[in-house]
Amino acid sequence: MALNDFSIPRSVIWKDESISLLNQQNIPHVTEYLDLTTVEEVWDAIQTLKVRGAPAIGITAAFGLALAALQDSSETIEEFKLTIKKKRDYLASSRPTAVNLFWALDRLVACIADVKSINEGKTRIVQEAIQIQIEDEKVCRLIGEHALSVFNDGDRIMTICNAGSIATAKYGTALAPFYLAKEQNKELKVFACETRPVLQGSRLTTWELMQAGVDVTLITDNMAAHTIKSKNISAIIVGADRIAANGDTANKIGTFNLALLANAFNIPFYVAAPLSTFDPSIANGEQIPIEERNPKEVTELNGVQIAPEGVKVFNPAFDVTPNNLIAGIITEKGIISDNYQEEITQLFNR
């Protein structure tokens, strides 16, 4: 079955003067695309998880900065560059952990460093944002091809959160091999953890895989150990929001749990991520900032209070998996393992 024979949903679409954004808050009940026309609307979409997934956040932020550039009324190139820098800082404040956000924004700022006119600057920013999205689609397919090489026909694989098509330009990272397996008529069964408290696994991963006809089974997060044992799970694959220079990986809360379980059951635990998710400036996972979110995400479910009023809440959005629990990090340039410090350095020199 060719990829175009089934639906791979897209999350971010550039429309020259606006952004059409899949509202991931309303999935699976409503498939709604928002029309974003201002940088403030883009900031809100990122901060409130209307868009999520590190690559998709970066792409959306890039298009948000492109909107800001097109709408700018500066009279001098110096004033234009200063405005772009301020809008960059504003968009960067929307989420603290996903490094793709800063990577994409900084790439756009850098691309206008030598421009001589405002029109040239606007054109270059738009073109660079579009190029980031094009590159991400190619990167995700390469990640999928490398990831598929470590799985066998008939494998049962567990994942958490959503590192799929709607978290990227297309295909996803951790979910990319499942789309490519479908294309090649290989049978991979996916077991998706629900991913409390915002339920990205149950709402998003199951939805998009079902759109594509991929065999997916939903479990609650606390069923993972029993499921690995009783369903003969072959491997675990997850995405990443930031990877430190030594390979320590920040991903959605609950990922560390799965890495520990993989180690206990002696099955491989893989991280799938593009080079843009690596942050060589951070030595190890202890230096990765962990976002803490609104307590209502834990105390409420669909707006209904499920916990006692006034209870104290700890709600980190991410955890960090140490490199020694990771069997391999799958990138667009191949799979690295063992000495992550050295191999990550080599990745950026290839």
Rank of each mutant, 00 (worst) to 15 (best):
F80L: 08
H226C: 01
F178I: 01
V39G: 12
S281Q: 14
A244K: 01
L105N: 14
D155M: 04
N257K: 04
R107E: 15
F151W: 03
L199D: 09
Y171M: 03
D241M: 02
L260E: 03
I228V: 10
K333Q: 14
S149W: 01
G64H: 14
A54E: 13
R203E: 00
K87V: 01
V298E: 02
I306T: 11
I112Q: 05
I134L: 12
M223D: 03
E40W: 12
I112K: 13
A259V: 04
A327E: 15
Q133K: 15
G310L: 04
V42K: 11
G254W: 00
I282D: 03
A54K: 14
E41G: 10
C140A: 09
N232W: 00
P308C: 02
L175W: 11
L204A: 03
F80K: 08
I57A: 11
S20C: 11
H226L: 02
H226P: 00
R124M: 14
E120H: 05
Y33V: 04
K252S: 02
P9L: 04
R196N: 11
P96E: 05
I219L: 04
A272Q: 06
V304R: 05
Q131P: 07
Q346V: 10
L22G: 10
M223T: 13
Q341F: 06
N339Y: 04
A192P: 07
E300D: 10
S93H: 03
T220H: 09
R293C: 00
T97A: 03
R242T: 06
P197M: 06
A163V: 13
K122Y: 02
D72N: 14
H226R: 15
T48N: 15
A273I: 11
D221E: 13
I112D: 02
K138Y: 11
A327T: 14
P295C: 01
I130G: 05
I243V: 13
K86W: 00
V313S: 05
R141E: 08
I125F: 09
V39Q: 12
V190T: 01
E17S: 05
R10I: 09
V51Y: 09
E32T: 15
G247Q: 12
N4C: 09
S149N: 07
P9Y: 04
K50D: 08
N266E: 11
E78H: 12
Q71I: 06
I143V: 12
S337V: 00
R88F: 15
S18R: 12
L67S: 10
L199G: 00
T83P: 00
I77Q: 09
F265K: 07
K189I: 13
A273S: 13
G328W: 08
M223N: 10
E208M: 04
T195F: 15
T249N: 05
L260R: 02
T97I: 03
P55A: 14
I253C: 02
I125H: 06
S117W: 00
N185M: 06
S11F: 08
I326M: 13
L22I: 05
